[in-house]
């Protein structure tokens, strides 16, 4: 961790309003990650409300799907009609969901200080942080690993500056199976698979690199 990161963590640590969440800054257990995915009511991170969250633990080479945390949230506003066909969550589907105030502590307890994984994680983090900031005074301090970024770093060359970062292309290229998408649990599992394959792959073994 470089100095700048350390400095910003230190600042964030000081900004934390609720000492009960100091564990977010603790030393994370080695070789553990949380793959996370949210389904939201719109694609605008400033407007989007969280409809469901899945967080899947990854330890060493195993994706502990069975231990996943799945939360259904009840949005305060309405769900953008255009997003419903994507995540297939209608107002009545989330009517019994938790409030953000109920859901966030469960999520934070679950992820702890572990690094987060995701595909286009930035969007999910923006939506989450919009809710966390007013409550705790901080953004999530956890290291974030963008799997499409890992993939880009592997693929990009001077001759081939354009890398196809669509999820289905990545999965196909890495010879990973596709799962029914836009179920946050499946999406989180897919991101975790990409992570495991890229982080454990020996570049020498693959002639493509």
């Amino acid at each position: 961790m470089n100095l700048l990161n350390r400095l910003s963590r230190w600042r964030a640590r000081r900004a934390l309003r609720d000492p009960a969440y100091a564990f977010l800054f603790a030393r994370p257990p080695a070789n553990e990650w949380i793959s996370i995915d949210c389904e939201t009511s719109s694609l605008d991170p400033q407007q989007a409300e969280i409809l469901s969250i899945a967080a899947v633990p990854v330890r060493a080479n195993r994706i502990y799907r069975s231990e996943a945390l799945r939360l259904m949230l009840k949005p305060e506003g309405s769900i953008a009609p255009g997003s419903i066909p994507i995540h297939q969550l209608r107002a009545q589907d989330v009517a019994n969901g938790l409030s953000v105030d109920q859901a966030l502590p469960l999520l934070l307890d679950f992820i702890g200080a572990r690094p987060l994984l995701g595909y286009y994680l930035e969007f999910d983090l923006a939506v989450l942080n919009r809710q966390i900031q007013p409550r705790l005074g901080i953004h999530l301090p956890n290291p974030a690993i963008e799997v499409s970024g890992l993939y880009y770093d592997r693929k990009v060359t001077a001759y081939r500056p354009e890398v196809d970062l669509r999820l289905s292309s990545i999965l196909q290229d890495l010879d990973l199976p596709d799962l029914p998408r836009h179920d946050p649990l499946n999406d989180a599992v897919l991101a975790a698979m990409i992570f495991l394959k890229l982080s454990r792959m020996n570049p020498d073994q693959d002639s493509e690199f």
Binding site: N61, R62, I63, R65, S66, V189, M193, R200, N202, Q205
Partner: peptide, 13 residues
């Protein structure tokens, strides 16, 4: 289905 996990084993492991 609830208790299915996924594991990844790189070549030669």
């Amino acid at each position: 289905g609830e208790c299915v996990d996924v594991a990844y084993f790189p070549k030669n492991v």
